[in-house]
């Protein structure tokens, strides 16, 4: 796990960054949700002990527990990210209806 998780984070960040640099607005949405998940996994790993056990009272006191706080934080972050992604998706739909395009470069309301 100690090697796997950093690799997952790396792949998520790399693909998320690639996707948000694309012109298609749906790829932008996907890219942001991948980036959000990468950040969530980073947060999870900040409380990871390696081979710790589930942080519930009554466990074996000799084995270290995993820190539960980052897990609670990640739940909050997931909910917030979900809401923001939903809003961005609705906006993407609105862009498609108003501008008849999914190309971010053609979304020009103010100038030319």
């Amino acid at each position: 796990m100690k090697i796997l998780l950093p690799m997952v984070i790396g792949v998520l960040f790399a693909s998320g960054t690639y996707l948000i640099l694309q012109k298609n607005i749906l790829k932008l949405v996907l890219g942001f949700s991948l980036l959000g998940h990468a950040a969530n996994v980073i947060l999870i790993t900040s409380g990871w002990i390696g081979d710790g056990q589930v942080p519930i009272l009554g466990g074996d006191a000799r084995v270290p527990f995993v820190d539960p706080i980052p897990q609670a934080l990640v739940l909050t972050a997931i909910v917030i990210g979900f809401a923001a992604t939903a809003f961005l998706l609705v906006l993407a739909l609105r862009v498609y209806r108003d501008f008849h395009t999914s190309n971010i470069d053609e979304v020009r309301g103010s100038r030319g």
Partner: peptide, 9 residues
């Protein structure tokens, strides 16, 4: 979204 990703990191 970008700033919240960086903040979480």
């Amino acid at each position: 979204l970008l700033s919240s990703v960086m903040f979480l990191t």
